[in-house]
Computed example of a mutant assay.
Amino acid sequence: MPGVQASQQIEALIAGGAIRAARPVAPGQVQPASLDLRLGARAYRVRASFLAGRERSVAERLADFTMHEFDLSGGAVLEKGCVYLVPLLESLDLPDHLSGAASAKSSIGRLDLLTRVLTDRGTEFDRIPPGYSGPLWAEICPRSFSVLAAEGQMLTQVIFRDGDTRLSDDALRALHDETPLVGAGPARIDGGLGFSVDLAPARGDLVGYRAKPHTGIVDLARVSHYPVQDYWEEVRSQSGHIILDPGAFYILVSREAIAIPPGHAAEMAPYLAMVGEFRVHYAGFFDPGFGWAGAGGTGSRGVLEVRCHEAPFVLEHGQVVGRLIYERMAEVPAALYGTGIASNYQGQGLKLSKHFRMDEGR
């Protein structure tokens, strides 16, 4: 059946050799609608980001751009502002009817750690063509914090699509009528489900966080470890707007609480490039069950990873900044997000990545 492949179908792809791994798949690596990808043992510091191009492999292009290589097996620091390539432990031999799409995991996006997947003969980041056979590589560029990374860590994820999986606006309206996709307020459906920024919290005046420019290293293996105030400045507002500083990175939250029903997944996309001098970055995929009541959610806010560009920009409460593109699942996953699996962000509001102690700095 056409649709995004569910966890049990991904496991069948592993068993059948369409997904290959240099070492056995780790517990928890298969998510409800995606597969987490693991870093390999070697890393390459490169002069610039690049794509392989239609006629060449990533390994061939490395010879043109590598500055030095180093070992990740015991962990190594990836420095802010530098670009690295790491071969992944997973490779693919997909059937012709399956394509793939990759994205940074939620915690990685919230660290402003630009992470993208490359393929041989690739002309786009994070897109794997139908029937692709070959290795996968991760490009990593820390933008706000230097990080300590190690072999086997999972920074990226990939979904597999069979055919056209996207819901039309009419189908999305019908789904919303059947099971509400947002909490209070109307659903703004136009090329997906629109969502807006929350700059008028019900309690207090904390509306977000801004990354500090000069901080220590973040060890990606540490959870609930780092004090918020050592890495982030609080962003407060009583006026319903904030002014974004050029070059700064912000964590904000959507006004809407959203839900993803079991037979669907979703991908976050920017709304319009011309609405202002900023971009909403996104971790990418929302698994079936995210925010859904049957999986322990009561609607979950979307965390927004925002970077301002050329000029200071006034961001207003309720301004539409992105949209969710809902997709059909080929099957309902055996386990939903938040139900029986380790889901860090079910029922979330304004929340930094799992590496920080959220009881501090508030």
Rank of each mutant, 00 (worst) to 15 (best):
S7N: 10
S7P: 01
Q9Y: 06
Q9P: 09
I10Q: 03
G16S: 15
A18C: 08
I19R: 00
P24E: 05
Q29D: 05
V30R: 04
L37I: 00
R42Q: 14
Y44I: 02
S49P: 02
L51S: 08
R54Y: 07
L62W: 00
M67I: 15
G74F: 11
V77N: 08
C82Q: 15
V83N: 07
V86P: 07
E90Y: 08
S91L: 07
I108Q: 02
L118D: 11
G122C: 06
P130H: 07
P142F: 06
L148A: 12
A150C: 12
D170I: 11
A174N: 12
P180K: 12
V182E: 05
G192Q: 08
F195Y: 15
L199V: 04
G204L: 11
V207H: 09
A211C: 11
A211P: 01
K212R: 08
T215A: 05
I217Q: 09
D219E: 13
A221W: 10
A221S: 15
D230P: 06
S237K: 05
G247T: 10
F249P: 01
A257T: 15
P261K: 08
P262C: 01
E267A: 07
E267H: 01
A269N: 11
V275N: 15
F285A: 01
F285P: 00
F285H: 02
G296I: 01
P312Q: 12
P312I: 10
R328D: 01
R328C: 08
A330Y: 03
Q346S: 03
K351E: 15
K354R: 14
R357E: 13
